[in-house]
């Protein structure tokens, strides 16, 4: 049960939130990563590395710092939980040629955070192939302790599943503000992770794309703020 302090909760109380999926305990982190304490594994989805250079190829010179930025954020999350295993849930690269475009510095950074831990790349629709240049194991999907980890969530009332792909985001109105943020969305039996990459947009969880996953059974949403992760009542969510 949640404990409430007598007055207000401070910023530190929202750094992470406990989440239960099919009876197993996880910690959702404000960065958008999911930590699995019993497996000492950190799970992230949709890094979309080299999205900036993918646009640059077509003449749109987005700032070339997105890969660096994403890896920094990932390194910080790994450090926070001292994860032994890292699982990237697909679309880790923005396109199949992305691995060749990663700069030496970013690659070195990746090597450092991969050192002394297991690293699993799950393939996604953007990265059906993952270059050996990036190290780690490559799998289409994996099962860990009865939970399936895959890129694209299966349609229907699937349970025991953690996925990404959809880039969930939620919108609420508060004090006259409209706030739209990436979010975790789940129903206790399955969970969809927010996109972790720095140039990734989001899809509203009230969009039709989420209906096959959660039906009308209700869902829980945790919004990523700038200073914390906030569980928000589903009934106050708004469409775009």
């Amino acid at each position: 049960m949640l404990k409430l302090k007598p007055e207000r909760l401070g910023a530190d109380d929202f750094k992470d939130q406990p989440i239960s999926i099919a009876g197993k305990a996880f910690i959702a982190d404000m960065s958008g990563a999911l930590y699995w304490p019993s497996e000492r594994a950190l799970i992230v989805a949709d890094l979309h590395l080299e999205k900036g250079s993918s646009y640059a190829r077509n003449g749109q010179m987005l700032p070339p710092y997105d890969t660096h930025e994403t890896l920094e954020k990932l390194a910080a999350a790994i450090d926070r939980y001292d994860a032994e295993t890292v699982i990237a849930l697909g679309d880790s690269l923005h396109d199949v040629a992305a691995a060749d475009r990663i700069g030496d510095e970013a690659l070195a950074k990746l090597r450092i955070i991969q050192a002394d831990r297991d690293w699993i790349w799950i393939t996604g629709n953007h990265d059906p192939l993952i270059s050996s240049r990036l190290g780690g194991l490559v799998r289409a999907e994996i099962d860990v302790d009865g939970i399936s980890l895959r890129h694209e969530p299966r349609s229907g009332r699937v349970t025991h599943e953690i996925g990404g792909h959809l880039h969930p985001a939620a919108r609420i109105y508060l004090n006259g503000y409209s706030i739209r943020r990436p979010c975790f969305v789940g129903n206790g039996r399955r969970l969809v992770l927010p996109a972790f990459g720095s140039y990734t947009g989001g899809l509203n969880v009230l969009d039709d794309a989420f209906v096959p996953l959660f039906g009308n059974d209700g869902m829980s949403v945790w919004l990523l703020g700038q200073e914390g992760l906030y569980p928000v009542a589903a009934r106050i969510l708004k469409e775009d």
């Binding site: 207000r8 910023a11 943020r181 919004l223 914390g228 906030y230 569980p231 009542a233």
Partner: peptide, 13 residues
Amino acid sequence: REDALREAAEAMM
């Protein structure tokens, strides 16, 4: 906005 989010979360809790 961060305050607003915190309030929504507290209300939910």
